[in-house]
Design a protein around this nucleic acid. Structure first.
Length: 395
DNA sequence: CTTAGGG
DNA sequence: CCCTAAG
């Protein structure tokens, strides 16, 4: 019985367990110090080209340069101590490994006490003074928004800790490091999102975004804040390699109608999301992702969506556990539709390889599914017997 | 925060 | 994909 309570679960070698619970230095020995100094050199070295430094300051829009920098950066770490995940007898072993690697990297960055220590975010001016001639910084900022508010004087008091704290390096490590999934996002899509909603906002001064951002962050219930953050994240992620995005929203998304024309006092507006609005954040699931999902379910079981997300979709920041759950729901539907409409190519399952759908059905029969209730499936007599046969638990 | 469910 | 309720 593996650590996840499943027979197919891969075993983690002791070294890995030791890494998670024990001292980092014990495992890494000297190499950590070496890499640490490497990193410091990277951060301190004034000879790096402007693209890298500007992106690091979050001022550069030519952020495509950053991704390559970060890529080299992260590849500079020696991950050889990582154990082979093993046991994942199918497609996704590579991704799981990648996920673990990023986990390690994140943990490492956390280990240096947030980024403030190395980032000196409360004293951005010093970075400007040491790494770039102030005129250089000024120039870059001016290019951004014309600097109508004199933000170029990045004295420490003009940046609230809340803001600077949000510009986390660990965030970059998660979201700007190129990975398999992000290659699905073409540069055209990147340009599209810039064109579609960037034209208006880009003319506004930087300070507008900061103020708006802070306001929206503060006055909000906890639940809403979480989702808001997620949406900001996903928005930023969708911008491909944009290092930092002050844009507080993606544009006027919601239209409202009065449910009651009489009652002006009760704020009874109900948001109406048009189809295009909803598709704004929609990203097509690739066959590869579907395979990973199927793998994840076969390893962790239905309902362990956070686990599946962490181990199979770690590098895909846009797939939340809920998204994954939804996709599984749709896959089930598709698999059953496919069975009943075997030859009809108009089936929802048209783009999904048959083999995968078979696996979906297998897993569906393996794990009794919670949301099998109504609405999702059309219950007809032809299928009821086969499902009842398969509904046996496999304890 | 996680999941289940409904929209 | 979004939103919310419930644990």
């Amino acid at each position: 019985m593996g650590p996840f309570g499943m027979d197919t679960t891969p075993e983690f070698p002791d070294t890995f367990a030791g890494f998670k619970s024990g001292s980092v230095d014990e495992i890494l020995g000297h190499s950590m110090e070496d890499k640490m100094s490497d990193m410091k050199h990277f951060l301190m070295d004034p000879n790096h080209d402007n693209t890298a430094v500007n992106s690091f300051l979050g001022l550069g829009m030519e952020n495509m340069g950053l991704s390559t920098k970060i890529e080299e950066f992260s590849h500079g770490f020696d991950f050889s101590f990582l154990p082979d995940y093993g046991g994942l007898n199918s497609y996704s072993t590579k991704d799981v490994e990648a996920g673990l690697k990023f986990d390690i990297l994140d943990g490492f960055l956390d280990g240096v006490d947030e980024v403030e220590d190395i980032y000196a975010s409360h004293d951005l001016s010093s970075i400007g003074n040491h790494f770039l001639p102030e005129t250089e910084v000024k120039k870059k900022v001016s290019e951004l928004d014309g600097d109508p508010y004199g933000l170029v004087n990045l004295s420490s008091e003009s940046f609230s800790p809340g803001i600077s704290g949000s510009i986390g390096l660990s965030e970059w490590s998660k979201e700007t490091v190129p990975h398999a999934e992000s290659q699905n996002v073409s540069s055209e899509k990147f340009k599209d999102s810039l064109d579609s909603n960037g034209s208006e906002d880009d003319k506004k001064p930087l300070s507008t975004f900061i103020g708006s951002w802070v306001k929206r962050g503060k006055n909000r219930k906890k639940n809403l804040l979480n989702t808001a953050c997620r949406r900001l994240d996903s928005s930023r992620e969708r911008m491909s390699c944009v290092s930092y995005d002050f844009r507080p929203r993606k544009g006027p998304m919601k239209k409202y109608i009065h449910t009651s024309t009489e009652n002006t006092f009760s704020q009874s507006y109900t948001p109406i999301l048009t189809r295009s609005d909803r598709r704004k954040n929609q990203r097509m699931w690739t066959v590869d992702e579907v395979m990973k999902l199927v793998d994840g379910i076969s390893h962790f079981g239905v309902g362990k969506w956070t686990d599946i997300k962490n181990h199979f979709f770690h590098s895909a920041a846009h797939r939340t556990p809920v998204d994954i759950r939804d996709k599984w729901r749709n896959l089930l539907k598709a698999s059953y539709n496919d069975r009943e409409a075997e030859e009809k190519r108009k089936s929802v399952a048209r783009s999904i390889p048959k083999e995968i759908l078979h696996r979906v059905r297998e897993l569906a029969s393996l794990h009794p599914y919670p949301f099998s209730k109504s609405s999702c499936f059309v219950h007809d007599s032809s299928r009821s017997r086969s499902t009842s046969r398969k509904k046996k638990k496999r304890s």
